[in-house]
Nucleic acid binder design. Structure first.
Lengths: 160, 160
DNA sequence: ATAACGTGGATAACTATTGTCCACGTTATA
DNA sequence: TATAACGTGGACAATAGTTATCCACGTTAT
């Protein structure tokens, strides 16, 4: 049981996109290069983020991706859910309920507990946003790295 | 990202074993039959539980498994960890830290958050024990089912 | 001795994740 | 209007993780 690597990569992609000026976009291939991800697979992740309304995509030449909402409105959980989907971590098989003769009653021996555990996991991820991580970066990264990255992005980005 | 089915089966196995009188054991095959699990694979799960010191095994004819500790001392998390292992849900790739030039500093943009989320997930699973679930069963199951199961177990179990 | 049980390793089947490829639609630009 | 650069969606392959099977072996009751 491990989180998909795509979740981490997607969060980093979102973070990269916070560096982008208004109306600019970054091509998917550039983003995947920066993250060292496989370009073709990463496009799939980007599309999931678009489907989840976290990213906007501009097709055609000079196309690319940008954040759809502002970084304060996008939680880490939003990204997690966009990539991993909405299925919960635990799925009861119902065997034990059968064995105990409590099939149709609403007594979920384990399910309730698992649901509660998952919710407290999720609430931690909901608390933190792309913006709060971005602020941490601004506080902690060496300024030269930040400016270097900033200018790289401004070089590669496309204005509309 | 889904929990292994083995975790659920293992918890149910532990619960079954709470029905067992002192010094009795249940053969692995009987347990797997009750849970509708594949016998050979389920033996592997049982061995993981033995390795984690949650079960005791008695080899030889009239052998089988019994709980090693008392049900109050075994948390749902113990079983989870025995089956899933100790690796955490999230493993940082370090790519972004490289990109930001913060490799060797202790600034874990995501790791800290993920660790915190996982800990709150775990603490929920640690709170509940095999015994607390067993008590729920006793309260909620139709008494005839309970006595039927109890007598099935006493029939199939082996005293030492 | 033999049968019933657990043990551990090798290995296969299955499933989910990750990665690739291609035909296509859209748009900027020459 | 042609072409090149980009995103889209589907089909597909490679890889990794999970589940399942088998077997030779050690232990113990009978």
């Amino acid at each position: 049981m491990q989180m998909k690597t795509g979740v981490e990569q997607s969060i980093y992609a979102m973070l990269l996109l916070t560096f982008l000026p208004d109306k600019g976009v970054l091509p998917g291939e550039f983003i995947s290069q920066q993250l060292g991800a496989s370009p073709t697979y990463f496009q799939k992740l980007l599309r999931k983020l678009v489907h989840a309304d976290l990213l906007m995509s501009v097709p055609g030449a000079k196309g690319g991706f940008r954040l759809k909402a502002s970084p304060e409105q996008i939680s880490v959980f939003d990204v997690y859910e966009a990539i991993e989907g909405k299925q919960s971590l635990y799925a009861s098989s119902g065997v034990f309920e059968d064995l105990m003769g409590i099939q149709n009653q609403n007594i979920c021996l384990l399910s309730d507990l698992m649901t509660e555990a998952e919710q407290s996991w999720q609430s931690t991820l909901k608390r933190e946003t792309i913006d709060s991580i971005r602020r941490e970066i601004y506080l902690n990264c060496p300024p030269d790295h930040l400016t270097k990255l900033q200018s790289l992005i401004e070089e590669k980005m496309i204005r509309n």
